[in-house]
Design a protein around this nucleic acid. Structure first.
Lengths: 327, 327
DNA sequence: CTGAAAGCGCTTACAG
DNA sequence: CTGAAAGCGCTTACAG
């Protein structure tokens, strides 16, 4: 009977008998017992998703997208959230393994280096938005450095030469790469390195630090913010000091999934993380490993981040106004 | 053997034999096969979580919290995301049912009325942040109306008498209840109903509509916003018109999970949705239904929303300044 | 007190 | 071409 239902009937079962079986199955609304099937085949068509909310986590889109795409390949995602950070990672992995997940998808809220829990070795793993330090696991990440280069070019194209960086904590891999990208772009344009204003990743802190930057003697005409909240802080600081964005100050931000940029006034020019495409690719790679036979190459995929137009960038003012501090 | 491992050994198995078994199990790192166990017991210790991202969905916290709490009771959550709205709900429910989930948790990104898919009847269901129109399913929701009353009182206590409402789309249950709450509070204080400025739920739209409100002849001294993005828009509009928050304009917002309020300058006074407590309760109710025997009462739980202090409220200015429009 | 058997619902060889 | 049996890994009665 299962032969028929699974399409292996031809050549084995008489045609009319097949029809009868199919009809009966329909009438009884027969649905196979997935548990029994899994027990037999030792495969559950299930992906264990390891995630954690992080300090400012916005993996929400990545998670939603991954779940939908997995579902379209007949895989279901079991979520194991290890809380604020990854300390319960090992236990979460074990729990998922007990449930016989076919593979793991590790979804990080922001780009980090990730060391897989010991329990996971031997099971297919794909990393989303994180990398294994020794590149021994397949990973799908945004090209953060390239994104920062792209962002900076938006300012350079408009003739800005006095650019500053507003960044989150430089101890995070993400911020380091983003800041580096800006400096690379400036160097390539023959400009000196930008001043880096590093602070907590929230609107208040951004406000404060940008205020400071705008009051400095060498007031920048263009700002690259590593995170949307910082850009919002910058907007508030500029308003407070009577500077108009973009005519007095141009603003570019890298996206971090908050979806704030397009909703501000003026709308922010940003460089976006292609969450959906990345999730799609990561799940596809994992599903491929799970369904195809044999060994698979470890791959490191880096996604280009596209620029998104906004009203926060204008040509550099010329001549540059005197610093606000000295009238 | 399983008797020992499951703690039913005493009285059945010789003590020293039990020790031997336990020791062997440890050495072999024995972990029971959950699949086989489920097939036998017809229970999977699995909760199917039905969710969708909605137009502006911020169920992220609810989801994370639910997953963690379920895990602490030995239940795992399988996520089924039905995309933008609930049109694929039925299919998602069926998929989860095929996986033999023990029960359903429906997590709505914002308060709505929810009609359970037909496939789900017969399986325990708890609704989180939504209600069944005929109150036939257990649900856990925030007291949106009460939250709006609380918010409004923050203004009334400071002597505000000219209050306006900035609201999202009034066709949504959530906004309706929030607006209603404000009016109830005003009526109770013997004040006339507030003007309602309803618009899209984003910063831009909030900005625009608040600008209009502030330029009207009867300029309000206090604003209740139904969503944080609208409050942010209000902040920008006030800054643009040279009004200071809170000395010229007091601002209170209801929270919607964006976590923006505390990060703005000035920090927003808000009334918060107790996401974690709600998720905890919802999961607890479901787990209880799944583990205890017999029938269970259908319950409708409403959670009080606590006010959160912020710097955006001050006593009403007196006398009220002339409207900005006529100097 | 202990060991062998039945059965959860499936699929895959294997006789007939 | 078809039907009965074995087995995935567990637990729960049921003989011994």
């Amino acid at each position: 009977m299962s032969l028929v239902l699974n399409g292996h009937g031809d050549g084995n079962i008489a045609a009319e008998k097949q029809v009868a079986i199919l009809e009966a199955a329909r009438q009884l609304q027969y649905r196979p017992n997935v548990l029994a099937l899994s027990l037999r085949s030792q495969r559950t068509r299930t992906i264990g998703v390891l995630t954690w909310s992080g300090s400012s986590g916005f993996s929400q889109d990545l998670l939603h997208a991954a779940g939908q795409i997995a579902a379209s390949s007949g895989f279901l995602c079991i979520l194991a959230d290890s809380g604020e950070d990854l300390q319960h990672e090992e236990r979460a992995a074990t729990t998922l393994l007990d449930r016989q997940v076919d593979g793991f998808l590790v979804v990080a809220p922001e780009l980090i280096e990730y060391r897989a829990a010991e329990a996971m070795i031997g099971t297919p793993v794909v990393l989303l938005n994180c990398v294994e330090p020794n590149a021994r696991l397949t990973s799908v990440v945004p090209d953060e450095r390239g994104a920062a280069v792209t962002a900076t070019r938006l300012l350079l194209e408009q003739g800005h030469t006095r650019v500053a960086i507003v960044s989150g904590n430089l101890r995070t891999e993400q911020c380091r790469q983003r800041v580096e990208g800006v400096q690379v772009a400036l160097r390539a344009a023959g400009l000196p390195a930008a001043g880096v204003f590093s602070t907590e990743r929230n609107v208040d802190a951004g406000h404060e630090v940008v205020r400071e930057a705008l009051l400095s003697a060498e007031r920048p005409t263009g700002l690259v913010c590593t995170h949307e909240r910082l850009a919002l802080g910058a907007l508030l600081a500029a308003a407070e000091l009577g500077l108009s964005v973009p005519s007095d100050l141009s603003l570019v931000s890298l996206e971090d999934g908050e979806r704030l940029a397009s909703r501000l006034t003026p709308s922010l020019a940003t460089v976006q993380r292609p969450d959906r495409a990345m999730a799609e690719e990561a799940v596809a790679l994992l599903v491929q490993q799970l369904t195809a036979e044999g060994e698979h190459d470890v791959r490191q995929l880096s996604f280009t981040c596209p620029a998104s137009v906004g009203a926060s960038v204008a040509p550099a003012p010329w001549p540059v106004k005197a610093p606000l501090g000295m009238p």
